[in-house]
């Protein structure tokens, strides 16, 4: 148990520290000027010293990410289901969503700002835009690969299509579903930042960074980038946590005792 925690938590942290170490070595070893690249410590200090300014901006980015992600995940799932169940819709919609993903979001963002204004809405739309796709594709794939024998068995028992869907098809697709959700989680913050950049007005993490950049405050540019990255990683880890929590059968051989007797367990 202890060994596993060490392996699963300790080693990843170590690898991140290693990255910081290499960064430090390069900056010091090659005498890189601090306006090109600060030392890790300087970047971190640039964040902590401005924390009271940064914190509301960070919260703003997190809010855009969460809203956009949740909408994107639900939309992506629903779209995957509808496409899997209705082949005509699949043929109709697949090219459209492909095109939607081929459009560079960064080019699309200013258009969305023109249409939707400088508020939170265009940012949410961009995050949703980015997140729904991997979810849809993976759900579609997962639902398409449910064991036909299992679906036949459900039919023999006289199961309705709805119950077969809820009790068999959805739980059988959890692994691909979470693959989609994890990919979406990593890209979600990028979407929010693109949205913030496109809106040249207002207060946001991306504009703060741009401001720092034009002031040649390189440490703050690096520091803000680190903050953005951390938000993305935190969100990803949250989704991983949700996956671990909701799929106990993948880790243990015996179920925990039911907390409410006579009520069905959380899965499915």
């Amino acid at each position: 148990m202890r060994r596993r925690v060490l392996l699963n938590v300790g080693v990843p942290i170590l690898s991140l520290l290693l990255v910081l170490g290499v960064w430090q070595l390069i900056v010091v070893g090659f005498h890189v000027a601090s306006y090109i690249a600060p030392r890790p410590r300087e970047a971190i200090t640039s964040v902590t010293s401005q924390w009271s300014t940064l914190w509301p901006l960070i919260l703003g980015t997190i809010r855009e990410t969460i809203y956009g992600y949740l909408i994107g995940a639900v939309l992506g799932f629903a779209l995957g289901v509808v496409m899997a169940k209705i082949p005509v819709i699949q043929r109709l919609v697949y090219p459209v969503i492909l095109v939607s993903q081929a459009v560079p979001v960064i080019a699309l963002a200013p258009v969305l700002v023109i249409i939707l204004g400088f508020g939170i809405v265009p940012k949410i739309v961009i995050v949703t835009w980015i997140v729904f796709f991997p979810v849809t594709v993976n759900v579609l794939d997962g639902l398409g690969h449910v064991d036909p024998d299992l679906k036949n068995l459900a039919r023999v028992y006289g199961a309705s299509r709805w119950r077969t869907f809820v009790q068999i098809e959805v739980p059988a697709s959890t692994t691909p579903l979470f693959s989609g959700l994890k990919i979406g989680a990593i890209y979600a913050v990028t979407g929010a930042i693109i949205g913030e950049l496109a809106a040249s007005e207002g207060n946001s993490l991306a504009l703060y960074q741009e401001h720092a950049n034009s002031n040649l405050n390189t440490a703050a540019v690096y520091g803000t980038t680190m903050v953005m990255t951390l938000i993305g990683i935190a969100w990803f880890l949250l989704v991983v946590g949700l996956e671990v929590w909701s799929t106990p059968w993948q880790r243990r051989s015996v179920a925990r005792r039911r907390w409410r007797r006579g009520v069905e367990g959380p899965a499915g």
């Binding site: 459900a154 199961a159 077969t164 009790q167 959890t174 179920a255 367990g265």
Partner: peptide
């Protein structure tokens, strides 16, 4: 994703 007990009742759960 279901325990032995819940697998035994699976047919019922489907109806």
């Amino acid at each position: 994703w279901r325990t032995v007990e819940d697998n035994i009742t699976m047919a019922t759960r489907l109806t």
